[in-house]
C-alpha cells in the first residue's frame, strides 16, 4: 500500500520522517516536497563515478558485451557496470576493449602511465598473471577433489612466490 504525499496530495510519499521537536509527529512526503521543505537535499552534482557508470552502461549496450566475463576472477562486465569496481588485475586485459574508452574519458584522453614504476616491474607483471591463473587452477582442483593436480599447482605457486 502506498501513501500519498501529505503536502501535495499527488505523488507517492517516499520520504518518511519522525519529528521529535517541537513534538513527536510523523510526516510522509514525496521527494520533491521533502526537498522543498529542506528535509532532504536533492543531489545537484553527479559524482564522477555515476557519470562514468552511465557511460560504461551506454557503451556496453552498444557493443553487446554484457555477458563478457573475466577468465581469471569470473567477474562479468555486467557486474562491473553495476558496481563500478573490477574483480582482479586481469580484468584490465579481459575487458580491455570496453574499458579503454572509459579510461580515456576519465583521464582526459590519457592512455599510458608515465609515472612511478616499481623497481620489480618486469617480475611483477609475470608473477601477477601467473599467480592469478595458478590460484584459480588450485581452487578448481580442490573443488573437483583432484589432489594430485592441486599439490602440483600448489608447488608451482610456492615456487613463483619465492622468486
Amino acid at each position: 500500500m502506498s501513501i500519498l504525499c501529505q503536502r501535495c496530495q499527488e505523488s507517492k510519499a517516499t520520504v518518511h520522517i519522525t519529528d521529535t521537536v517541537p513534538e513527536k509527529r510523523e510526516r510522509h512526503l514525496c521527494e520533491d516536497c521533502a526537498a522543498k521543505e529542506g528535509v532532504i537535499v536533492k543531489q545537484k552534482y553527479h559524482t564522477t563515478n555515476e557519470i562514468l557508470q552511465q557511460f560504461i552502461k551506454h557503451k556496453a549496450e552498444a557493443s553487446g558485451s554484457d555477458d563478457l566475463a573475466c577468465p581469471q576472477c569470473g567477474l562479468t562486465f555486467r557486474e562491473f557496470q553495476l558496481h563500478g569496481q573490477l574483480g582482479c588485475p586481469h580484468d584490465y586485459v579481459a575487458f580491455a576493449k570496453q574499458l579503454s574508452p572509459l579510461i580515456e574519458r576519465a583521464h582526459e584522453g590519457a592512455t599510458h602511465h608515465v609515472g612511478k614504476v616499481p623497481a620489480t616491474a618486469d617480475v611483477t607483471v609475470r608473477r601477477q598473471t601467473g599467480l592469478l591463473r595458478l590460484r584459480k587452477e588450485l581452487q578448481e582442483a580442490v573443488e573437483s577433489e583432484d589432489y594430485e593436480v592441486a599439490a602440483k599447482v600448489r608447488d608451482e605457486i610456492q615456487n613463483l612466490e619465492s622468486k
Binding site: 564522477t48 563515478n49 562514468l52 563500478g84 569496481q85 573490477l86 588485475p89 584490465y92 574499458l99 572509459l102 579510461i103 576519465a106 583521464h107 590519457a110 592512455t111 599510458h112 602511465h113 609515472g115 612511478k116 614504476v117 616499481p118 620489480t120 616491474a121 617480475v123 611483477t124 607483471v125 608473477r127 601477477q128
Partner: peptide, 23 residues
C-alpha cells in the same frame, strides 16, 4: 610485495578512475 602493475596502464586499481599513478 609485488603490486599489480601494467606497463601501459601503471598501477592497477579496483576502480578504473584511479588507475595509473593511483594518486
Amino acid at each position: 610485495l609485488a603490486f599489480a602493475f601494467d606497463r601501459q596502464l601503471g598501477y592497477l586499481t579496483a576502480c578504473p578512475t584511479n588507475v595509473g599513478t593511483g594518486i
